[in-house]
Design a protein around this nucleic acid. Structure first.
Lengths: 337, 337
DNA sequence: TATACTCATGATAACGATGCCGGAAAGGGT
DNA sequence: ACCCTTTCCGGCATCGTTATCATGAGTATA
């Protein structure tokens, strides 16, 4: 690792003080025209780059965002891309840490980023996370924090999220409109907001349509294709099997699709299916799967923008909330009219 | 942003010098037992965390790895996971930057990371990258650099890659074994190593089997489903159309599959198809797509390990190369015997 | 009793940069 | 000739930590 040229090197070579060199480089006012030129020329020649570490130590700001996410599936990768784009533009670098849906990893990551002095955090919690002390700690240290996608109600921080209740509603209503009567729900982990909100939309819609809720038709499982498949198989062997499935994520929906295919039932004739996320995969399956779009890229950009706003303004933004409206894309798996 | 407690605070409170406090906290030998206890107790109470910035400035090391990748598709996300895992274990944090397959972005990212003082780089180049000055600059500054997946021949740096020639061979040989005679190649961008190597394997295998190479059957296109689809449509309208397609990535293979389906040809009867990467999607398509597995997670881990080795040893490792052997997973799209 | 040696601690410089203050030289006005 | 203002630059402190050297007290040794 080669020694970087420093301001001192330039100062020494030009028989100037470091202060003067520093001023010259920053185009500060009180520097002679000639010295300024000389300094800049030499800096160019020696390929001088200011040491960000020294600056960060002095200014107490690192221009770095700590981003903690549960995984890197389609939706999150897309959100990360959105965050990255806005952050880069504003001169921030993003440190991405995957918790891998593990509470322990999330804590380790938070701790690490916290004392490696990121300027703030953007977080989407793992599905295991039910205790939020690590997140409160961020706030105790008065670091900016923005929650996105999987948000937490008990934490007062600005958030960017989808109107998941609405998402649950439009998916369920669509299935009802297509004539399905017994609609099952493949839900996610029980402690996850997004899952419960989508379920809330499902329940509301059933009630509005005077359809009785059958709790046996609601199954909680991890966001994982295999679980989706297993859960669906279970549903399909019930004596009074559902005639439609609303899966809270496309992964689960794909698992469901595979399970349904194995039993020989026809989609959408015998059974309807709607997923969530509008993962490009849904367009590639046979049959193609209807799904709820959540505008991940835009959500990512909005999240980063709020973060930057929070960094730059001193006003309290903890009740700021941006809610995206979901949109259903109807495909073969639920079109039987 | 709250002021962090520093060593000075503790020193002041305990009427000690910062030196002593520093020693006590690091369990250095020559500190009195009582003072050590007192210091540690107070540190605990005030939730003291050493300032990493100050340490980094002093030690000239940030425990940070700059990771530059073209995108976050399945393979790369998996590799990143592998890298992350090993890095975290070793106390390093990874800064992931996506070049988004853009040469310009790649340069900006490199520059940024370079002067934000990461300890070294792990890079997989964008498909546009044909000039490597930015990468040479990293080496000029004597920062550790490891290339992976999409490597560059003209740069002397340790690398972790797949035996792509072999990958091209096994895919092509498999198609020949299945009785396909006119095998087309959906190649990637012309300047990309991985693409050319896979093509090399394809060409070798054709020759070995005394099959004449028809250049019209080789099409270069970006790694993108749409391009794969367009290219395939073109291939299928030839007067002497191919009876099999070897796509250099699963995205292209999926595009090909869609194009083939639209023309009404039967897979694998009328036309065979093999992809590359073994993306989980290939298992979900109808028909399922044969594909070459590249062990992305293991490659990621190996890459990070080499990086760490490079950081810790002072010996030249620039000719170190780890080559993974690919494995073909045969599925419906190419099984007609 | 003087010498040497250990043990615990303090003082200082350094990492690379900035910000504030002060001062020399030059010029202008009265 | 005096004072005042600019213009340009150097010195010093600072950010939080560690490393190196110095110092002081106390103890063992000859």
């Amino acid at each position: 690792m080669e020694r970087q040229t420093t301001i001192k090197d330039i100062a020494l070579a030009l028989r100037l003080s470091t202060s003067t060199v520093s001023r010259a480089l920053r185009d500060a006012p009180d520097v002679g025209e000639e010295t300024r030129k000389a300094v800049k020329a030499l800096a160019e020649e020696l390929d001088y780059q200011p040491n960000k570490l020294a600056l960060s130590l002095l200014k107490k700001q690192t221009n770095t965002i700590g981003l903690i996410i549960p995984n890197l599936d389609y939706v999150l990768a897309t959100m990360v891309k959105g965050i990255d784009e806005v952050a880069l533009e504003a001169g921030y670098t993003v440190m991405v840490c995957q918790s891998d849906e593990s509470f322990g990893r999330e804590i380790v990551n938070t701790k690490r980023l916290l004392d490696s002095l990121v300027d703030g955090f953007i977080i989407s919690v793992s599905s295991e996370t039910m205790i939020f002390e690590h997140i409160k700690k961020i706030q105790q240290k008065k670091k900016p924090l923005v929650l996105f996608d999987r948000t937490i109600n008990s934490i007062a921080a600005p958030r960017v999220r989808l109107d998941n209740v609405e998402g649950g509603r439009i998916a369920t209503q669509h299935l009802i409109d297509q004539g399905y009567k017994r609609i099952a729900l493949l839900a996610g982990p029980e402690n996850l907001n997004i899952s419960n909100e989508r379920m809330e939309g499902y329940l509301q819609t059933l009630k509005q349509n005077k359809i009785k809720v059958d709790k046996n038709l609601i199954i909680h499982c991890d966001f994982n294709q295999e679980y989706g498949k297993m859960a669906t198989k279970e549903l399909l062997t019930m004596k009074n099997r559902p005639d439609a499935i609303f899966a809270i994520s496309d992964r689960l929906a794909i698992g469901a699709l595979l399970a349904i295919k194995e039993t020989g039932l026809k989609i959408p004739k015998d059974i309807g299916l709607v997923g969530f996320n509008n993962d490009p995969m849904t367009k590639l399956m046979t049959p193609t799967i209807s799904s709820v779009e959540m505008f991940a890229f835009e959500m990512g950009k909005a999240t980063a923008k709020i973060f930057l706003e929070m960094i730059h303004s001193e006003t309290d933004m903890s009740d700021k909330e941006i809610i995206f409206k979901p949109k259903l894309f109807v495909r073969e798996s639920s079109s039987r009219i």
